[in-house]
Amino acid sequence: MRRTAADLGFWAACWLALALVVGPAAWIVIGLVRKTWPVLSVDLLLKTTAQGGLQNALFGTLVLAAGVLILAAPIGIGAGVYMAEFASQRQASLFRFVSEVLAGIPSIVVGYAGYELLAIALGWGYSLLGGILALTALVVPYVVKSTEAALQQVPTSLREGAAALGLPRWLMLWKVLLPPALPGVLTGLVVALAISTGETAPLLYTANFSDANPPVQLLHHPVGYLTYVVYDYVQLPSARAHQLANAAATFTLFLLLLLIVLSRLLAARARRRTEQMGL
């Protein structure tokens, strides 16, 4: 009897724990959407922050993400390929270690280092490229890891088959290994995009912020992005500013939701491919 009661009590506590996990997520999303819904308008998309909209911030977020993709994809995929295909065990575990250390660095430290190195030492000032580089430093480990894992999950039989046909390694990689590994690799890139969309701290002192559209230049001009609007405008004392902060947070969440769904679709696809080939 007492044992049954303890059992019931324990699982009730577990249900409570699950509620405490699910609750805040729902609370945050629903609360934000409810606050933003009444003030949604086309103006948000058309006007710059200086005029009370989010156009420049949204654009800046997308440009930053695109820049991260351009830099992090070749670096991360290349490094992942080397670790999975060429590195010796010891080399691979060393690279993996470096990658993990890099992933563990607090984002504000990356931001500070970016400010000192890029904005000051190299004299770039607040710049688009500075922001992109800071974000790239942050996300590269994730691309490396998912690329390496995706290549390693390709069944050995495929490699043996390709080797038996006398394919050189680059051709084997391109024709045999890459197609099945592709969804996994792409998942890593989507994660990288999600991180760059949501981060603020590394950008504060590298890209800084601009409430208008900067000229199309990589250096010397600060760039706006959504998360800064959230951070800055929520601290301003006007209701209008709070609305803008909420709207920026909702936009960010919406972008992230799209990316999460995309990464899940890719992951499901990757799983299916691996299963098909496992025969």
């Binding site: 805040p24 949501g198 947070a249 992230l256």
Partner: peptide, 13 residues
């Protein structure tokens, strides 16, 4: 989703 919500949005909440 919970892991993907940006830090600054948690701060806003």
């Amino acid at each position: 989703l919970l892991a993907g919500i940006p830090s600054v949005v948690y701060g806003l909440w």
